[in-house]
Write a protein that binds this DNA or RNA. Structure first.
Length: 589
RNA sequence: CGGGGUGUAGCGCAGCCUGGUAGCGCGUCGCCUUUGGGAGGCGAAAGUCGGGAGUUCGAAUCUCCCCACCCCGACCA
């Protein structure tokens, strides 16, 4: 490819809206261009990278027997109606009608559609298991697209779906996909780690996210500094050390006058008591009308995702004045003692037998010596946020919180979709059984930008050979020297004949511009054909990832580059391991 | 959805407060010189100042409404 005619120019300055290094480099290096908020056009260089990322995943999916298919982007409403997601996904989807008025959704994901095909294509247990996947556009009307390709409103996802006859089969399919992911990310140069994640409201008991640690990530991850415990913030737990306390000696609750004190910090300051000894009371009103009181130690914050999951609701609303009145509660002095008709959830970090200070449900009054189990009761549940420095639930070590980009996720759904969609097969025993379902996604564009985020230096991108838009970058200078031009074109021809992907910088611009662009584009090998070098009979070969250069005799230059490319390709091609050979972290032995 | 911010030439920005000729750097085009780390000279093109309405003799500038985009948060099978 001649760089002089490349569609997409490099930018010397990054547009002001680009904040993260990867976003800036993605734009400067002509990977993609914005068309509207969260909508990007892939330019030739970027599309080549995206295709290579896809091909790596394709090879790894095929290796475990997954079959590539392709489903439509425009999907009729009726399949979504079957699972209730036509309504549930309304706020985040793009919709349209055809000219006869029939409603469609730009697919947000493809579970329903795959399940529909499964129930018509698969009739017998003899056809199971089956795993299908495709690379297809998803439309998601995100409230806030951000950071270039990291969060967009239309993107290609590789989504795979496994269909098994029982949980055992699903388990096997799930861990096979786990291996596909681990291998794929390694091959594309991403250091992805797996973390336990929430299954959301969709059922199933196991889910993992593949996360790449980087400060620009929008997810917060809880990692143990000692063992291999890793979890998404929404799912993370901590070890709570129960202090052996003498509860017997606590006197009965007594009132405290606390004029004008309505918040935990004020109360702590007023009583000169650490927040951990106070009891925080939060009142929610569900859409069903039910009122839920949540009790936490004063030094802990509520984890809304954990509470939502516990309650099985999509969103939470704090209670209003009417709710306070109905329960006999007083805002600012609310507490569990004597409260009417509310579901009470006591966070796991509230200690039994310990005297707490809490609201008295009377204006300007709190209660001291309130004890769980004696003075109030409630469901125990873990609904608090984990923090930096908390104890690991597995080993007791220190937890740390890091940011990450979710490049992939895998979900075990079990019979959830089959039950909703009446998708069954005829089992060996002659009965109809539901398909056990799993789904597995990787965002291609997000992976591309995450590779940039984690593979660059101050001058530009440093592509891994496996996904680089080109493998070698031949730079001729000066371009107006016919001898240089002829030599450069001979090298290009030789490389291309040997199957090397070459970008040829044939522009008549200064050396500084060419080198700066070469560094920015980040093609792994730079091959400089110059008047100076030719005088000495050499061509310079330099790896983008290294500072040193190698001057190779002109006649052997192309062969040397072919060797280097071949070596680098091999480094990213993993040996063909037998299926199920590796044991992923957290997998059953 | 809540909060904050920005829209002026392809990119980065100034001008706005205090109304009166639309400007700077880079890039682009032409000619010449130059050619191993974002060259130099001379010349040139390029802007509905995000949109609409209003105030005014006169609006990039003041007022109102709208739109787009970005950032933080919420949300994100």
């Amino acid at each position: 490819m001649r760089q002089s005619h490349l569609f997409g120019r490099t930018l010397r300055d990054a547009p002001a809206e680009a904040q993260t290094p990867g976003h800036q480099l993605m734009l400067r290096a002509a990977i993609a261009r914005p068309l509207a908020s969260g909508l990007y056009t892939w330019l030739p260089l970027g599309l080549r990278v995206a295709r290579k990322v896809e091909q790596i995943i394709r090879e790894e999916e095929d290796r475990v027997g997954a079959q590539e298919v392709r489903l439509p982007v425009i999907t009729p409403s009726e399949y979504w109606q079957e699972t209730g997601r036509w309504d549930a996904l309304e706020p985040v989807t793009f919709r349209t009608r055809d000219h006869s008025g029939h409603e469609y959704m730009v697919a947000y994901t493809h579970e329903e559609l795959v399940m529909h095909h499964a129930r018509t294509e698969i009739q017998s247990y003899r056809q199971l298991p089956a795993v299908v996947y495709h690379f297809q556009e998803k439309g998601r009307d995100e409230a806030r697209p951000r950071a270039g390709l990291l969060r967009v409103r239309e993107f290609v996802m590789k989504d795979a779906y496994s269909i098994d006859k029982d949980m055992e089969g699903l388990d096997r399919s799930y861990w096979l996909q786990y291996e596909v992911y681990a291998r794929s990310f390694e091959r594309m140069g991403l250091k992805a780690i797996s973390v336990e994640s929430d299954t959301g409201n969709m059922g199933g008991d196991v889910a993992h996210e593949f996360q790449v640690l980087t400060d620009v990530g929008e997810d917060r991850l809880v990692l143990c500094t000692t063992c291999d415990y890793r979890a998404n913030m929404e799912k993370a737990r901590r070890r709570i050390d129960v202090a052996p306390g003498g509860a017997a000696a606590v006197p009965a609750p007594s009132e405290l006058s606390t004029p004008g004190i309505k918040t935990i910090p004020d109360l702590a300051a007023f009583l000169k008591t650490p927040p951990v000894d106070l009891l925080k009371s939060l009142l929610f009103r569900l859409s069903s009308g039910e009122r839920v009181l949540v009790l936490l130690p004063g030094d802990r914050d509520l984890s809304e995702p954990k509470l939502r999951k516990l309650l099985g609701v999509p969103n939470l609303a704090y209670a209003g004045d009417a709710d306070f009145a109905a329960l006999g509660a007083v805002a600012g002095s609310m507490g569990p003692v004597g409260l009417l008709k509310a579901r009470v959830i006591v966070d796991a970090s509230v200690e039994a037998g310990k005297p707490y200070v809490t609201g008295a449900n009377k204006p300007d009054t709190h209660l001291r010596d309130v004890v769980l189990g004696r003075d109030f009761q409630g469901e125990r549940a873990d609904v608090h946020d984990v923090r930096e420095g908390d104890a690991c639930p597995r080993c007791g070590g220190k937890l740390s919180i890091k940011r990450g980009v979710e490049v992939g996720n895998i979900f075990k759904f079990g019979p959830y979709y089959a039950d909703k969609m009446n998708a069954t097969y005829l089992a060996e025993d002659g009965t109809r059984k539901p398909f056990m379902f799993g789904s597995y996604g990787i965002g291609i564009g997000r992976a591309v930008q995450t590779i940039i985020e984690t593979n660059h230096d101050e001058r530009g991108i440093v592509w891994p050979m496996s996904v680089a838009p080109f493998e070698a970058h031949v730079v001729a200078l000066p371009m107006n020297d016919a001898a240089v031009r002829d030599a450069a074109e001979a090298v290009v021809a030789e490389l291309e004949a040997a199957g090397v992907e070459v970008l040829y910088d044939d522009r008549d611009v200064s050396a500084g511009v060419k080198f700066a662009d070469a560094d920015l584009l980040g093609i792994p090998l730079r091959v400089t054909v110059s008047a100076r070098g030719l005088k000495a009979g050499t061509i310079e070969v330099k790896a983008r990832s290294r500072d040193d250069v190698e001057n190779v005799p002109r006649a052997g230059a192309a062969a040397r580059v072919v060797d280097l490319v071949t070596d680098a390709r091999a480094r990213y091609r993993l040996p063909a391991a037998p299926l199920g050979a590796s044991t992923p972290i957290g997998a059953p032995a």
